[in-house]
Computed example of a mutant assay.
Amino acid sequence: MQIDPRDGTHSMYRTLTGLVVPRPIGWISTRSHAGVDNLAPYSFFNAVSVDPPILMFSPIDRPDGLTDTTVNVRETEEFVVNLVTNEFADAMNQTSVELPSSESEFDDADLEREAAAVVEPPRVAGVAAAFECELHDVLDVGSSSLVLGEVVSVYVRDDVTTNGKVDTSKLDIVGRLSGGSYDRIDNRFEMERPD
């Protein structure tokens, strides 16, 4: 099968999300100017740069405008990226519900907030790791907003470290596949990089 993205016969969303797998999930918490804490998962998420440390996520704009997450980030210039592990999979899914901007997904999913060290939006209490970010840039890319954030503080739960370093073997990270399908990192293997 050959797909021409311009002919409109195939859903490019389904094609991209079905083939670019697994995708890490950025569980983004923001706070509105009115003080409402927003929490939403984004599987168009990844690391971009080390120096400075930059993460990105990309909300697809809604037909009626920007997502609450995008609005909040543009207004406050801060957000937190919470990592999703298996213990939080159901709660993460619950926070994908569309609520009025006056209601918080934290409350809807019965999640506790934990104060961030540097930024105003809270992190999800109990997560294995979270990146506190200040807005670096927002780019309008077609029907999406590409949000770039500079990491200003990182929280890592002690039980996912070994000798003071992140131990990925202790992280039960959940990745997004397509539709309602997700994946866990439970079949690791190693390869040595060639010289």
Rank of each mutant, 00 (worst) to 15 (best):
Phe131Asp: 12
Asn46Glu: 13
Pro59Trp: 10
Thr17Cys: 06
Met1Tyr: 15
Ser144Tyr: 15
Arg113Leu: 12
Val152Ile: 13
Val50Gln: 10
Pro41Gly: 01
Thr168Leu: 11
Asp107Asn: 07
Leu146Asp: 03
Ser49Tyr: 09
Ser11Asp: 09
Asp137Pro: 04
Ala34Ile: 13
Asn38Tyr: 04
Leu66Asp: 13
Asp61Cys: 14
Asn187Phe: 06
Val97Thr: 10
Val151Leu: 09
Val81Asn: 04
Pro59Gln: 03
Gly65Arg: 02
Glu134Pro: 07
Arg62Gly: 04
Ala130Tyr: 13
Pro22Trp: 13
Gly175Ser: 02
Leu39Phe: 10
Ser43Met: 08
Glu134Val: 12
Ala130Phe: 13
Glu120Leu: 09
Asn72Phe: 08
Asp140Lys: 06
Thr70Ala: 09
Phe57Gly: 01
Val20Cys: 13
Lys170Gln: 11
Phe45Arg: 00
Pro5Met: 07
Ile25Gln: 03
Asp110Val: 02
Ala34Thr: 15
Asp61Met: 11
Tyr42Ser: 07
Asp107Tyr: 08
Ala130Ile: 12
Ser104Asn: 08
Glu75Ile: 00
Glu112Arg: 04
Lys165Glu: 15
Lys170Glu: 06
Lys165Arg: 14
Arg31Ser: 12
Lys170Thr: 04
Leu177Gly: 01
Ser144Gly: 02
Ile185Gly: 15
Ser11Thr: 02
Tyr155Leu: 04
Ala116Met: 10
Glu105Gly: 00
Val174Asp: 05
Val156Leu: 06
Asp64Ile: 07
Cys133Arg: 04
Pro41Thr: 02
Ser29Cys: 06
Glu98Tyr: 12
Met12Tyr: 09
Ser181Asp: 15
Ser29Met: 04
Thr162Gly: 00
Ala129Arg: 00
Pro53Ser: 13
Ile60Gln: 15
Val141Asp: 09
Pro22Met: 08
Ser58Phe: 05
Asn86Ile: 09
Arg193Gly: 03
Val36Asp: 14
Leu55Ala: 05
Val156Phe: 02
Ala116Cys: 13
Val152Ser: 05
Glu150Ser: 12
Ser144Ile: 03
Ser11Pro: 04
Asn187Cys: 01
